[in-house]
């Protein structure tokens, strides 16, 4: 009798640990990974100096931009270089967006019809800058593997939820196993074709955070085209004056 009881508890214990090992834990890991990605570049506030290099089959340019953000609602960007664009600024509050053009001294509100257009000729759209893009809320995820997997990397497959205004069939995320910092994101259409790829490189420490300082966005279906963003300086969770996110500030400088 005693023997049976011990075997039974052993058995129950085994089942229990098996359960823990397979089902839930993996999902939580995926969620954890995604959460980290979402919050990587976000904070209650931020201020950064970055370089955007745009390469197209017809031309190449590098812009130097100073950017401020507050939460997910407000963003302000000012172009410092090159000379032709110096002083141009973009303000985003909620769903609305304005551009300032120093040459003509004009503030133009971007109509929704132009929101899907590219921001300043890059591969990022106005929409990209505006949308409250969260992987966490908009997708379902599962851990997965890929061909030619790197050692020390983890892979997550994100499938958009049904009613979310997202065009992708699914997104693959690759992160470092130890600190969950992103290695790349690949965006696929519903037929499984790779449409867009974002590479994360050169991890640097900015204040308390370690983040990839270089993001390379490569549209796979257009030849010879990509946009590279390099963070030169960045400060997170600092106090920012509210005046920054105002139409008046667009004209200042």
């Amino acid at each position: 009798m005693k023997r049976a009881l011990i075997t039974m508890s052993y058995f129950i214990f085994l089942c229990f640990s098996l359960m823990l090992a397979t089902g839930e834990p993996d999902e939580t890991q995926a969620q954890r990974i995604v959460k980290k990605i979402d919050e990587l570049y976000r904070s209650t506030s931020s201020k950064a100096l970055m370089e955007m290099e745009i390469i197209t089959p017809h031309w190449q340019r590098t812009l130097e931009i100073r950017a401020w953000s507050e939460g997910m609602e407000k963003t302000f960007m000012r172009i410092l270089e090159p000379k032709k664009e110096r002083g141009m600024a973009t303000l985003r509050i909620g769903n609305e967006m304005w551009n300032y053009l120093p040459k003509t001294n004009k503030v133009i509100k971007i109509p929704p019809s132009m929101m899907m257009g590219s921001w300043m000729g890059s591969d990022f759209t106005n929409d990209d800058l505006v949308k409250e893009f969260t992987f966490f809320n908009d997708y379902d995820f599962e851990m997965t593997t890929v061909n030619q997997a790197q050692t020390g990397a983890l892979y997550v497959k994100c499938i958009p939820k049904e009613n979310v205004p997202v065009v992708w069939g699914y997104v693959l995320l690759a992160v470092r196993a130890d600190d969950y910092l992103p290695l790349w994101e690949k965006f696929y259409d519903e037929e499984g074709e790779l449409v867009r790829e974002m590479l994360f490189k050169e991890i640097k420490r900015f204040g308390q955070r370690a983040i990839p300082s270089v993001m390379e966005l490569i549209p796979r279906q257009k030849q010879g085209q990509k946009t590279i963003i390099r963070y030169l300086e960045a400060q997170f969770d600092i106090a920012l004056s509210q005046d920054i996110f105002s139409l008046r500030n667009l004209r200042a400088e």
């Binding site: 745009i54 340019r61 664009e85 053009l101 040459k103 003509t104 004009k106 133009i108 000729g121």
Partner: peptide
């Protein structure tokens, strides 16, 4: 009237 567009060299074309 002010116009913003993209020039062929990638710069932002704008003028009044």
């Amino acid at each position: 009237i002010v116009i913003v567009s993209q020039a062929a060299d990638g710069s932002i074309a704008n003028d009044r």
